[in-house]
Amino acid sequence: MKSNSRLLSAPYTVWMTVFIVVPMLLVGYFAFTDKAGSFTLENILSVGQYSNVFLRSIWLGAVATVISLGLGYPFALIIARMNAKRQNVMVMLVMLPMWMNFLLRTYAWMTLLEDNGLINSALAAVGLPRVHMINTAGAVVLGMVYNYIPYMILPLYSVLTKMDQSVIEAAQDLGANDRQVFLKVVVPLSMPGVISGVTMVFVPAVSTFIISKMLGGGGNLLIGDLIDMQFLGSAYNPNLGSAVSLVLMVIILICMGIMNQFDDGEANEKGGMLL
């Protein structure tokens, strides 16, 4: 039995080794070596000069995550309370934008947010002043929310739709009003979905680069843009790029560790059953 399990897991082990372990080892190698291949800490120490980029990335990623949670939670709750047929339709609508190319979706937002785009043209048509939206931090956050909010809605929906309704009915029978039921029953039981959604939105948001480049312009440089410049830009410095990538991985691991502190063992057990 064990030999069969090992045989079945072999393709995944090979895949994980080739596409996860080896790239991470290469990143670590380049981060701690110079162009001649000699060991150095200069690359890691040089990352400090980009602290403002890291802070901006974490801030915008956190804002996008909070907005996604604020919009995604009630939407997931509404879907979970629909009948099965309507749930399937709504889930498909949530996933529909994900079927389109990521770059194409971002280009569409450029068309909407430009100074002469559709939104400003509509404002001018009704006599309202134009609003500068493109190449701003707000446009970057908007792009993050639009592209990543499905990753918030789907885990929340998965938990909420499988929630034991008898627990909610019991709370109501004991005299709890709707607000108390939501805060003391629904929210605690949905925490595994909240934690999964927050993680799945924050991690790609904090490391994105194409959204900030297209919607934020040159004034909203994020970590992903910095790494892209080191590997593909004119500044070509894979050693510094690897050091920035390594620091970013550490920051993400720390953030994930902090998020896991909000989920105790009992919640993990319930979350596993709900999911």
Rank of each mutant, 00 (worst) to 15 (best):
K2Q: 10
L7V: 14
L8K: 00
P11H: 07
Y12K: 02
T17D: 01
V18K: 10
I20S: 15
I20H: 08
P23V: 10
M24G: 04
M24V: 07
L26E: 14
F32T: 04
T33F: 02
D34V: 14
K35G: 13
K35N: 11
A36M: 06
N43V: 10
I44Y: 09
G48W: 04
G48N: 05
Y50S: 14
Y50T: 09
R56Y: 10
S57D: 03
S57M: 07
W59H: 12
G61A: 12
A62L: 13
A64N: 05
T65C: 12
I67Q: 10
L69N: 01
G72N: 00
Y73G: 08
P74K: 02
F75A: 02
A76T: 09
I79R: 10
A80H: 11
M82D: 08
N83P: 05
K85E: 10
N88D: 11
V89A: 15
M100N: 09
L103K: 02
L113P: 08
L113I: 08
E114T: 13
N116M: 05
A122D: 09
A124L: 04
A125S: 14
L128N: 05
P129E: 05
R130E: 12
R130F: 00
R130N: 05
H132N: 13
H132P: 00
M133Q: 05
T136V: 14
A137N: 14
V140W: 01
V140C: 11
L142S: 15
M144Q: 14
I149C: 05
P150Q: 04
Y151C: 09
P155L: 04
L156H: 09
Y157T: 04
L160M: 10
L160I: 08
Q165S: 14
E169M: 11
Q172H: 06
D178L: 07
R179E: 01
Q180L: 11
K184W: 09
V186R: 05
P188K: 12
S190I: 15
P192T: 11
G193C: 00
G193W: 02
V198L: 11
F202P: 00
P204G: 09
P204C: 07
A205H: 02
V206F: 01
F209E: 12
I210M: 15
M214K: 03
L215G: 12
G217Y: 00
G218W: 00
G224K: 14
G224R: 14
G224V: 15
G224P: 13
L226N: 11
F231W: 08
A235R: 08
L240H: 14
V244A: 10
L246I: 08
L246A: 15
V250A: 15
V250H: 02
L253F: 08
I254Y: 06
M259Q: 08
N260W: 00
N260D: 11
D263V: 15
G265D: 12
E269A: 10
M273S: 06
L274Q: 11
L275R: 12
